[in-house]
Amino acid sequence: MQFSRDRGLALVALVLGLAVALVWVPLDSASGILEQSRRRVSVGDAAAPTLAALFIIIGALLLWIERVSDEVSALTWRNAVYLLWLTGVLGLALALMWGLGPLAARLWGAGEYRLLRDTAPWSQIGFLCGGTAMVAGLVGLVDGRLSGRGLALGLVSTMVLIALYDLPFDDILLPPNGDY
């Protein structure tokens, strides 16, 4: 069972390695493996990534032939379900973190967010709500339901982080303020 699962992984790695070496690197590098300008030959930008691809290909071939009698470890549909939940929770939290500050500033008519990115409370709204959502969402994911405990923990931990990073340092920007 372990052998066939590892062979599946080997196949994926082999395709990836070949795609990198034969498609991505040649199409996305300005110079080849070796470059000649006038009479001087030098190593081009494609050489190092090709070596990386070679490592992947050799690894895939070894994985195909080697037998590892270690404990079985492989991906299952449960991992995929978990990753979907995780992506949903983190995606929602990061969306709140990114957009809530500018949205609040616009709704309140406080002005352009770029000028408010270092001014409380505008600079902290997105982080506070997004961070709380992230912690509460992940606690809820484990518990199987959203709880007051998770929300309280999220709120307290984001407030502690604001106190730790934002209040004592003038030159530090909390997410997402550095992007505005």
């Binding site: 300005a30 992947i56 994985l63």
Partner: peptide, 23 residues
């Protein structure tokens, strides 16, 4: 597993080479 180790090494090298180079 040597095979998995080499694949991981190749991926690590690839990550290091993205966005770099002399050109």
């Amino acid at each position: 597993s040597a095979g998995k180790g080499l694949i991981a090494t190749g991926l690590g090298l690839l990550a290091a080479f993205v966005g770099t180079g002399e050109d």
